[in-house]
Nucleic acid binder design. Structure first.
Length: 501
RNA sequence: CGCGGGGUAGAGCAGUUGGCAGCUCGGCGGGCCCAUAACCCGCAGGUCGCCGGUUCGAGUCCGGCCCCCGCAACCA
């Protein structure tokens, strides 16, 4: 079963609008999904929205909507932006869907049956104005700042998950690499968590109304983590009548997550799966965080960038590229909004776009748009680039793929400058034919490399050399040298990425 | 002393086992004229967060300190 690939993004909380952090995680998953499809693997790519909890209910009330109406609208924002970004997900799970509710109820029952869940009491400060528990830190001179009331100390009955029972097994799985946590620095962070106190966690709430009822106690609602994490299997049909997809695709080959939810995915989730006797995910990749102009992204600072704006300004492919090229996959990085224009112009317009334009223009000008005789002068360097490109993506290093694309462009520009085709046109037609062949074939490779990251551009590039129809091929059929044949038609490319300003 | 990540050129980042500090963008100067005023070559720019230690030699190893970030409001 090594030719399937199941990749997930976090499910995004609907109490927020999509921002570039969400987009970064989702685009990354999309790149890997597209790459694996291109390898010929059977890919299942899941994303979705997390829709329960008191915050959602509050926001809905503020907006004068029912929680479900509110969720429909905000979940729609995510679906729309993924559509605009050409995200190729196979499924979109919403935690308010019936299939998910069924699956979660099944899981909770199962955890109860195996004795992983026990009843206990949660004690906390409760504000009747907020209708929720608040912490001491929230208090202003002993009162709830929103309602100017003293919260009462109350106890509520809750169900808890016996995390401690499973911690040694989870630690062992991660230590032995059965669950691979990437990058390495994050793996160390997770191993550090086991040395600290990790408490059993509550899986239900009595006062929250907007949620999935606990199947064995309807006075309670299932609390966030069991609800949210389970999406990765409920979407595949786990706990439902039709679980074919679950049998086929689980365990996940890759969960992509943000660092804020590392503990839940690397500790709680495997523990729940072990308790329920379900296989654990193979890889968990923690993405870095953007800071903007050195500052953390936040609503209060107001520096949040809407991915829709990027698409409107640059188009879908460039938006994808610009987000991915900021820093190595897995690292944090700072960005400046003004840099997007600079990078667009240098990498895309001057780099990829201009190269395709100059090569196809020369092919047309010197050989009437037909591929001249074959040659393999650039065969070796291209093979080397492919190797690091593929090794990189096999380890989820999207930055290596981008590096390969840049190297290919640099190789081609340098090759043109070295050989000066405009001089060969006057002095040495035979040599010119070889140079143009090498460049045309190189463009074809560039088109293939670009595919996972910029799918539309890939087709445009491959169209110029008449090789855009690759639906029935795998990458391994296409990424070796010499597939362009003498006489193949080359079409002069229009500007792929018009310069901005 | 809670745990973990990080501080390297104007900006964003690489730096494997300690051995002449690199990449991309931006700036400056040259070249070219096929191409989207694009491309190629060269130059400038760094007390590698601070202090101390080990060493023939430290961005890298050790100790201490400062600052930023995540775990821990909203949130990938």
């Amino acid at each position: 079963m090594h030719n399937k690939f199941y990749v997930t993004t976090p499910i995004y909380y609907v109490n927020d609008k999509p921002h570039i952090g969400h987009a970064y995680a989702t685009i990354s998953a999309d790149v890997l999904a597209r790459y694996h499809r291109f390898l010929g693997h059977e890919v299942h790519f899941l994303t979705g929205t997390d829709e329960h909890g008191s915050k959602v209910a509050e926001s809905a009330a503020k907006a004068g909507q029912t929680p479900q109406e509110f969720c429909d609208i905000t979940s729609g924002h995510f679906q729309m932006v993924w559509d605009r970004l050409d995200i190729s997900n196979n499924d979109f799970i919403r935690t308010t869907e019936e299939r998910h509710k069924q699956g979660v109820a099944f899981i909770l029952n199962r955890l109860k049956e195996v004795g992983a869940i026990y009843e206990s009491e949660y004690e906390g400060l409760y504000c009747s104005g907020c209708e929720k528990f608040i912490t001491e830190k929230d208090l202003v001179s002993g009162e709830c700042p929103d309602h100017k009331k003293k919260p009462e100390l109350i106890k509520e009955k809750n169900y808890f998950f016996k995390l401690s029972n499973y911690l040694p097994q989870v630690e062992k799985l991660i230590d032995e690499g059965k669950i691979k946590v990437h990058p390495e620095s994050r793996r160390r962070e997770v191993m550090g968590l086991f040395k600290q106190e990790l408490n059993d966690f509550s899986v239900s709430r009595e006062h929250v109304k907007w949620g999935i009822p606990v199947p064995f106690d309807v006075s309670q609602v299932i609390y966030v983590w069991v609800d949210a994490l389970s999406n990765y299997i409920t979407a595949l049909g786990y706990g439902q009548a039709d679980d074919v997809a679950f049998k086929k695709f689980w365990p996940a080959d890759l969960h992509i997550i943000g660092k804020d939810i590392l503990k839940f995915h690397c500790v709680y989730w495997p523990a729940m799966l072990i308790a329920a006797d379900i296989e654990v995910p193979k890889n968990i990749f923690i993405t870095g965080y953007f800071t903007i102009d050195g500052q953390k992204m936040s609503k209060t600072i107001g520096n949040i960038i809407d991915p829709n704006e990027l698409v409107s300004q640059f188009g879908s492919d460039p938006a994808r590229y610009l987000l991915l090229c900021q820093f190595p996959f897995g690292a944090d990085g700072d960005i400046k909004a003004e840099n997007f224009v600079l990078q667009y112009n240098s990498d895309l317009a001057n780099g990829i776009g201009n190269l395709v334009s100059r090569v196809t223009a020369m092919a047309e000008k010197y050989f009437g748009g037909a591929v001249p005789e074959q040659d393999d002068e650039l065969k070796e360097p291209v093979a080397a680039i492919w190797q690091s490109y593929q090794e990189g993506l096999a380890n989820f290093q999207i930055d290596k793929a981008i590096e390969g694309i840049k190297k290919t462009v640099t190789l081609a520009d340098g090759y043109i400058d070295k050989n000066k085709p405009w001089e060969l046109a006057k002095t040495d037609r035979a040599k010119l034919a070889k140079v143009i062949y090498n460049l045309s074939e190189l463009i074809r490779h560039l088109g293939l490399m670009v595919y996972p990251i910029m799918p539309e551009t890939s087709v445009k590039i491959l169209n110029t050399v008449g090789k855009a129809d690759f639906t029935n091929y795998h990458l391994s059929d296409l990424n070796h040298w010499g597939l362009l044949n003498p006489g193949d038609k080359i079409n002069k490319s229009e500007a792929l990425f018009p310069r901005i300003q």
